[in-house]
Design a protein around this nucleic acid. Structure first.
Lengths: 341, 341
DNA sequence: AGTGGTCGCTAAACTGATTTAGCAGAGCAT
DNA sequence: ATGCTCTGCTAAATCAGTTTAGCGACCACT
């Protein structure tokens, strides 16, 4: 790769100057007393030779690689990983940096390997990302340099970027209240494990908290709360069937994520009920299926791209130590209507 | 990052030997005449100091970086990108390499930038990936070193990895024939643009070809073929409604991808028909929604993880120049049954 | 004439590894 | 005593940049 590239020495020779002069000119050093003509000659020579500096050589001296490590637990399983990476990629490009990506798969050995691999390559900083918003402890090895946690917080008070799930909870509840839903709102997706163990999830607790807060303020209480062992469509389906078997039918459903809502839709369809005329549905995440459902599903979007971008900015520009909350925008779609009758 | 790491000189000093000796021992060079005791001392010193070589320094000399560039058009939009990357990541790790990821967003300026960025970092090779299987021409700049096309082919005869869409087409048709479906199989998702322009898609043509081939062999012909401008749920929905409005109802539907099938399910549900009792459905991609649908959707999986892995293997181990076809496994699920009556 | 300052530039050191060329000493044959 | 090979090791060059220290020429001033 990159055979016979012109070196700085080639440029200097062609410009009839020293490597020092060429280096200074190309780096735009202030305070050097090189003549305007020398500048010209160096630029011309570099241009003509198509000179590009060898970054390995440069970073050997400067200890800067213009490279950021993106270390995450799992890149593949969720559709969202791509957005996190893309946001980071964008911000990195704007700052002339590049991303070295590794995956730990939640395995200590892999993690060790991944971290050594990136440190050996002298990265300028590490973005340590989790695919589910949660609390974690970062390996000591990366604490030698800048670190930003992405979609995670840590007890060490490292800079971190997380979605504003609590705000999303408030938006969701507010959207229903606004339409006139009151005491017949049901919630699908309570989960003790997710709510109580911050190392499993921070989202569940925050969302619930936000919902409760908004409802309390309006002096409304939930009609029912369904617990689900996982947040998958089948659990949403089962929960919805459970709700429909009860005497009082809810006027609106809040699902803790879109997959649950997807399952709820299936149960509603089978029961011959229509969304939103019979029941409104709203949820969290803005998974692509949310827009594909019929009717399209109102939800609050996980701002993954924004978050990835913010992480890079925090890493390179430095920033606050308290967790940086990225707002989750409400996507108003067809699944919302005022309560029937 | 990586402040005060021990250098080779430190190790040599502690072992009471020269840098040369230390380097040779640590690299396990054959044919050196260093004593067993010298080996011991070097290993011990390296261990004690926690020595890790500075790869920037090493690659300056060796022109190897143990780093592969993964350049793709778009990482975020499809859920599959993650799998492609994960497969590549896995294979890279096994070979002690790491992935530098960049995205061109299909924009020539970004592409130029991305390629310069990775070449400046002296990567050992480039994986040039497309998110939709298609033919493309690779930028001349990367032809200086090893290149593998991923999910794409090129007119230049570069090594490439693509899914076996034609085989998938045959499997899909065979699965229906096997169940006894004959002349009332309909196809949703014909699309001239995708079929005729290899720079847009290679999948559409190959899938169609595979389906036709299997049906022809069984002397069966399609009941109907619906054209769709895009392969999104709404188009599948519309196509399915169209089919149901015709006098002869199909016994089985082949959709060109899962999103179309998702739309078709919606139309079937609205029409009060049940899958698979009234109509069987089968498709391509194995999007996560396929497993979540009720009933779960039979489909052929895009082997993205395998493909990513294969690309790295081809790049590092060298390999065939004809496109490397990765089989698409058939996922038999609940949406299949023998024709009614 | 001597001194000091500015201008325009360069030699050489330095980064941390790999690699080439070769040295000192031992053993052996002539 | 001389030459030869073999053993066990090292000095120095090299990769491609950045950075420090400083050199020679010219001018102004006392």
């Amino acid at each position: 790769m990159g055979r016979n590239r012109a070196t700085l020495a080639d440029v200097a020779r062609r410009a009839g100057l020293s490597k020092t002069a060429a280096s200074m000119v190309l780096n735009g050093r202030e305070g050097t007393r090189l003549s305007a003509e020398a500048h010209q000659r160096v630029f011309a020579a570099a241009e003509e030779l198509g000179y590009r500096p060898n970054l390995a050589a440069r970073s050997l001296r400067t200890r800067k690689t213009a490279t950021i490590a993106f270390v995450s637990d799992i890149v593949a399983t969720t559709r969202f990983a791509g957005d996190l990476i893309r946001g980071a990629l964008d911000a990195a490009r704007e700052r002339d940096h590049v991303l070295l990506i590794t995956e730990t798969q939640g395995d200590a050995t892999f993690e060790q390997y991944a971290i050594e691999a990136v440190l050996d390559r002298q990265v300028d900083g590490v973005i340590y990302a989790a695919m589910a918003t949660r609390r974690l402890t970062v390996p000591a090895a990366i604490l030698g340099g800048p670190v930003v946690l992405l979609n995670a917080t840590s007890p060490d008070g490292l800079p971190s970027v997380v979605p504003d799930d609590e705000g999303a909870g408030r938006s969701v509840a507010a959207a229903l209240l606004e339409l006139g839903h009151r005491d017949s709102i049901a919630l699908i997706g309570r989960n003790r494990l997710k709510e109580d163990d911050p190392e499993v999830s921070l989202a569940a607790r925050a969302r619930l908290h936000g919902i409760r807060q908004a409802l309390d303020e309006a002096d409304v209480s939930l009609l029912a709360e369904c617990f689900c062992t996982e947040w998958l469509p089948e659990h949403g389906y089962a929960a919805m069937r459970g709700l429909l078997s009860k005497p009082k039918r809810p006027s609106a459903i809040i699902c803790m994520n879109d997959r649950l809502a997807f399952g709820a839709y299936q149960a509603l369809g089978e029961a011959g009920l229509t969304v939103p005329e019979d029941i409104s549905v709203i949820s969290f995440d803005d998974d692509p299926i949310a827009a594909w459902l019929r009717p399209s599903l109102a939800t609050t979007a996980l701002p993954h791209e924004q978050m990835g971008r913010r992480a890079v900015e925090l890493l390179l520009d430095g920033g606050a130590t308290e967790p940086s909350l990225v707002p989750m925008p409400l996507r108003r779609r067809r699944s919302l209507a005022p309560p029937a009758g």
